[in-house]
Amino acid sequence: MSDAPEEVAWQGKWITAKRRGKWEYVARARGIRAAAIVAIDADGHVLLVDQYRVPLGKRCLELPAGLIGDEAGHEDDSPFDAARRELIEETGYDCAAIEDLGEYHSSPGLVSESFTLVRATGLTRVGEGGGLADEDILVHRVPRAEIAAFVAAKRAEGLAIDVKLLLLLSGALLGD
């Protein structure tokens, strides 16, 4: 563990580049965190989304997710409030229940950001989804048994695959 002081190399509105000893890493500005949602409907379908991601230069297949505390009037939202709001915005589905599945770090050697993973059940279609006006989110309702084939097809189409989808693919990847 480094005893060196943390230095801010650069700070923008949303991210901060930091240095501690020999390590360089990125953090969310203002302590903003994220929530990711495993949304499963009564028929056993999982909701996935894809959207263009500037850092990747292409669309990415992902779990619905969003930032916590990034919007005016929502600075004090809990991860569960943010997850529900993002689920509705991105997919057009609301949920009856949200279960906390824990806090995770997706790339701890590069980014200090964590996300709270939740499972949303009791889904009801309440809108079109697709995100906010400046987002172009496509919604996919995929049977759980077909997740691996669906992800493989999207990868073959050239989409990036978010690391959080590994939780849905683990059985297929481990030979179960």
Rank of each mutant, 00 (worst) to 15 (best):
R59W: 04
G57I: 01
I88D: 01
E90S: 14
L110Q: 01
L67F: 14
C60Q: 06
T116E: 02
R85H: 14
E128C: 03
G122Q: 00
E90V: 13
P64W: 07
D81S: 14
E75I: 09
L48S: 09
E89R: 13
S107C: 08
E89V: 14
T121H: 09
S107H: 12
E71L: 14
L48N: 06
C60A: 07
T124S: 14
L47T: 09
S107M: 11
A65I: 02
D43M: 01
G66Y: 07
A83F: 12
G44A: 06
L67M: 15
L47R: 12
C60I: 04
D81Y: 02
D41K: 03
R85L: 06
C95M: 01
T116Q: 12
A72C: 00
I88H: 01
S78E: 10
P108W: 04
R125N: 01
E62L: 13
A39H: 07
V111H: 10
E128M: 06
E89K: 09
D41W: 06
A42Y: 00
G109H: 09
A72E: 14
T124H: 07
E62G: 02
A96D: 15
D100N: 14
G102V: 13
A83T: 12
D94Q: 08
D81I: 10
R84Q: 12
R125G: 05
G109N: 13
I68A: 02
C60G: 00
T121I: 04
D70I: 13
I68P: 00
L123W: 07
D94Y: 02
V54A: 11
D43A: 15
A39W: 06
R85W: 11
S114G: 13
A65S: 15
S107A: 14
Y93H: 13
L87T: 10
E113N: 10
H105T: 13
P64V: 09
V54S: 03
H74M: 08
L47A: 11
V54K: 11
P55G: 01
L101R: 12
A120I: 10
L63Y: 15
E71T: 11
L67Q: 13
E103R: 14
L123R: 06
K58P: 00
G92S: 07
P64S: 09
A72L: 06
D81K: 12
A83H: 04
D76A: 15
E90G: 08
L101N: 01
G129H: 09
R125I: 03
T124I: 12
G69I: 03
Y104D: 03
Y52S: 01
G127Q: 02
G73I: 04
I68D: 00
